[in-house]
Design a protein around this nucleic acid. Structure first.
Lengths: 309, 309
DNA sequence: AAATAACATGAATATTTCTCATATTGAACT
DNA sequence: AGTTCAATATGAGAAATATTCATGTTATTT
């Protein structure tokens, strides 16, 4: 056969593969099973008659052929995205309004770059961030006060469509040279004896408490701080422990400001999802916002994984 | 659904559609049925929620959305081709030898640009053109004297793979203001009374004689000339009629040097095919040569159609 | 108004892609 | 080394998609 039946699917596969470092992670990211990715990769390789990556290593490493093909993907896929965006504008018009409600405190940090990217792509869409804390952010969707909510709770609701954004690890933070630094990972009881420093939100919105400490019957003293830096400062000065998303603290960890350990053997992972009204799913710039958030997040945030829904 | 499931297939479709001017022609070019093209186009349009082309007109006209998407195709598809070429070089090495045997006289004309393009893509492949006329060019493949033959006869042979190149119309040529110019198209009897000016090849290699005049029992006098210009010069000076490929004479027709008419109601069409040894099909630069010939031909030669095999 | 050519459509078929269940592999750990 | 664990591979069946076939529709030509 003369014309290679290579498709964009293959390029998206390769890109996901290198960005997520393995077949399994890539599969999640593409909303496929690991098996599908394996089959597809094998098919692509035999189509080209070339091997594209060394699977034995972690993260996977590209062969020369793989690198050349990835280079194509990096040229082509952004062009495709830009085209689809232009077509979407042609379809629905360029202008509109997009109000985002945030459930989590730390979300501001990573959302900014994504919002900048969105503004560049859709200059005529008015972007609004609903501040404050909402007991039930989904009601904002029903009320029509928000168009997109970003939440960790994606239990299906009528007329609301959820799209997984990503999963991130929550790390336990302790002062350098703290006694607990000797442990590979922390267990519930390790939190019993010291105050827990958190954002000023109710207990049940703190994953560590709701999912780890409460089930184990442990209720540490709490102390609150508004800003991420403030929490870190308190931890560093030995006022207590904290638990924060890995991507929020990674710059501090690199400078050895505090020490971090996983919570539990497999770590404590949380997921973020975007929710929108079912009937808005076709509105181009809303869907595109989510695409942009995903792209930016995976490109910028260290140590995140695809959400599994 | 967030990520549009657009694929290269769709881009190839759109490109074929505009280059060939209609669904039916595009289908032939893509080796598909008209139905498949229609379905596929419809699927693409509903995927994007936009109409891409006005079908009522001939040639089809793109909508704004169609134009934008074609722009993407024109960026992306050449990149893909270049990448596949690079991968092919990685696979088989860059160097080799490619000997081409030509059956038809006029082929030299259109083959040159394609050969130039090939040389640019594969600078280390040694390109050879076997000159002269061969009774049975396929034997050159078996002998190993040629790697690719270009022929109008694609009847299946053991161990030989044929790939259709294109179909072209053979036009009857007559002096301006000749009596026959009043006719819309010529019939066999119209050739009875004047000499036929041809290349110096046996009767049965001249399509007009073999497929039109002989069956009708008409045997005009013949006169031979080596070069296309020479034939045209003879026609223009009223020494007889000729029949040549449309693309070979189109520059002369534009300057009204001679007058052309179709042969028979539907015109006389001939096809060209490339043949190679079955076992060479995997050799990258051989297959790529055919791809390049097809691309260059469709881009440069006026009035050709996909061959139907 | 008939004939023709190009395109559309629905149902049947063919092909491709995906998933499920399970095997294999390779690294990490006693 | 043997065991365990996570990651990848594989085969077979299921699901989804693409293609064809047969035919209908539409627009254009004669």
């Amino acid at each position: 056969m003369n014309i290679s039946h290579i498709e964009l699917r293959h390029l998206r596969l390769l890109q996901a593969l290198v960005e997520s470092g393995g077949l399994t992670a890539a599969a999640e990211r593409l909303h496929l099973t690991q098996s599908a990715v394996s089959h597809q990769l094998k098919a692509l390789e035999s189509l080209l008659g070339l091997s594209l990556l060394e699977r034995a290593t972690r993260p996977v490493r590209l062969t020369a052929a793989g690198k050349r093909l990835l280079q194509l993907a990096d040229i082509v896929l952004p062009e495709v995205e830009a085209t689809l965006r232009d077509l979407a504008k042609l379809k629905d018009g360029e202008a509109g309004e997009l109000r985002i409600a945030l459930e989590c405190h730390t979300c501001y940090d990573w959302l900014m770059p994504a919002m900048d990217a969105f503004r560049a792509a859709w200059p005529h869409v008015e972007l609004d961030l609903l501040g404050g804390f909402y007991a039930d952010p989904i009601s904002l969707l029903y009320d029509g006060q928000a168009d997109i909510i970003i939440t960790s709770d994606a239990t299906p609701r009528k007329d609301v469509a959820f799209e997984p954004l990503f999963a991130y690890e929550i790390l336990a933070l302790m002062p350098n040279k703290h006694a607990l630094t000797s442990k590979k990972y922390l267990l519930p009881k390790d939190f019993a004896s010291e105050p827990l420093i958190t954002y000023p939100v109710p207990q049940d919105r703190i994953d560590l408490i709701r999912r780890v400490l409460s089930p184990a019957g442990i209720k540490p003293a709490r102390r609150e701080a508004q800003l991420t830096v403030a929490i870190l400062q308190l931890v560093a000065s030995r006022r207590g422990l904290a638990a924060l998303p890995a991507w929020a603290v990674s710059p501090y960890l690199e400078r050895d400001y505090v020490t971090a350990r996983p919570i539990g053997k497999h770590g404590l992972w949380a997921e973020l999802h975007a929710g929108m009204r079912e009937r808005d799913v076709g509105r181009s710039y809303l869907s595109d916002f989510i695409t942009i958030v995903q792209r930016e997040s995976f490109a910028r945030l260290p140590g995140i994984r695809p959400a599994i829904l």
